Computed example of a mutant assay.
Amino acid sequence: MLVLGIESSCDETGVALYDTSAGLLAHQLHTQMAMHAEYGGVVPELASRDHIRRLVPLTQACLQQAGKSYADISAVAYTQGPGLGGALLAGASFANALAFALNKPVIPVHHLEGHLLSPLLGDDIPEFPFVALLVSGGHSQFMAVRGVGDYTLLGESVDDAAGEAFDKTAKLLGLPYPGGAKLSELAKLGRAGAFELPRPMLHSGDLNMSFSGLKTAVLTAVNKARASDNGAPLSEQTRNDICRAFQDAVVDVLAAKAQQALRQTGFKRLVVAGGVGANWQLRQRLGSLNKVHTYFPPLSLCTDNGAMIAFAGALHLQAAQPAGGFDVKPRWPLSDIVQA
């Protein structure tokens, strides 16, 4: 069976073809990063319009790359939510129209489930069960995963997600949008221990997280550093040191909570997915946990992409789950698809 996957939840248009026998055949992605950089953040109306422009040519490019035609498609999967309402509608409209024209089923997919399962597209495929750490721009969650569709929420961020905190902190430091990746690169040049920042909820006793206070602590550190230098702008080294301190704090919290989740479940496998899963320091730290096998999706699949949607859709299709219809859910807690 050949599944076409459509991802349009935010500012990336992703289209992919996944074959249940041959695996991922084609993967096309367009990022709107340059368009939104002028505004310092994602503009929903512009995002929606750009998805509309990109979906047809990206789909045609996927088919050409895979050597397939529209007639070969068995089903069309699309991101139903969560995400920006207009952006989701663009993908849902295209997916449903195409599925109707081809007389094929349409499969709605939860965006976070796509991320959750994306490491299964890598070369080193984790076996069930495992603990999953979802770390994206809008979500930070720990899940116990015992099988496809068998998920238990263990803990989550009570305010800013890790990726959101990265981008907001980068903005505080004057880095261009989107600044999270740039902050991570500058952290390589920072001196460990030059600044001390808190580790929020490190000893909370549960698996919940909080990062908004860490962002405030960065602002305090910036103001103190500038005041000590008569109000002058931060030097490059001071900025790099603050980047390092911020990243150290986030990684410390995520690593400690990951170890707690593994102890709590008794699992020996950890899966890390989502955009922050590309962070070099987080990969190093979680990849070196004692007696734990840690899995990451390929770097190209850490960001939002159509491959994870096509793959999740194919799994739903193989499980003979009922086909969906035209609907989007901008606010859709992952708990809605979590087993009790």
Rank of each mutant, 00 (worst) to 15 (best):
L4F: 09
E7F: 14
T13E: 06
G14C: 09
Y18G: 06
T20Q: 14
S21F: 15
G23H: 15
Q28M: 10
L29N: 10
T31L: 09
A34W: 00
A37L: 00
Y39C: 09
Y39V: 07
Y39G: 05
V43S: 07
P44I: 08
R49K: 12
R53S: 12
R54F: 02
L58P: 02
A61E: 08
C62Q: 03
L63F: 08
Y70R: 11
A71D: 04
A75N: 00
Y78C: 05
Y78N: 03
G85V: 14
G86P: 12
G86C: 12
L88T: 10
L88A: 13
L89V: 14
F94T: 13
F94I: 12
L102K: 10
N103E: 14
K104C: 03
P108L: 11
P108M: 10
H110W: 01
H111C: 07
L112C: 14
E113R: 13
S118R: 10
P119Y: 14
P129E: 11
V131D: 12
A132Y: 10
G138W: 07
G138H: 10
H139S: 10
M143W: 08
G147F: 06
V148P: 04
V148N: 05
T152V: 13
L154P: 07
G155K: 03
A161N: 07
G163I: 04
A165C: 15
F166L: 13
A170S: 06
L172M: 06
L172H: 04
G174W: 02
P178F: 08
G180I: 05
E185W: 00
E185L: 02
A187W: 00
R191C: 14
L197R: 03
P198Y: 10
R199M: 02
R199P: 10
H203A: 13
S204F: 01
M209G: 06
S210K: 06
T216F: 02
V218S: 02
V222N: 03
N223D: 09
A225F: 03
A225R: 00
R226G: 06
A227S: 10
S235W: 00
D241C: 03
Q247A: 05
D252P: 11
F267L: 11
K268W: 03
L270I: 05
A273G: 12
G274L: 01
G274W: 01
V276E: 09
A278N: 12
N279C: 08
N279P: 06
Q281C: 02
Q284V: 03
Q284D: 06
G287S: 03
S288F: 04
F296K: 06
L299Y: 06
L301P: 07
T303N: 06
N305D: 07
G313H: 01
P322H: 04
G325L: 05
D327W: 05
S335M: 07
V338I: 14
V338E: 15
V338H: 15
V338C: 15
Q339T: 13
A340D: 14
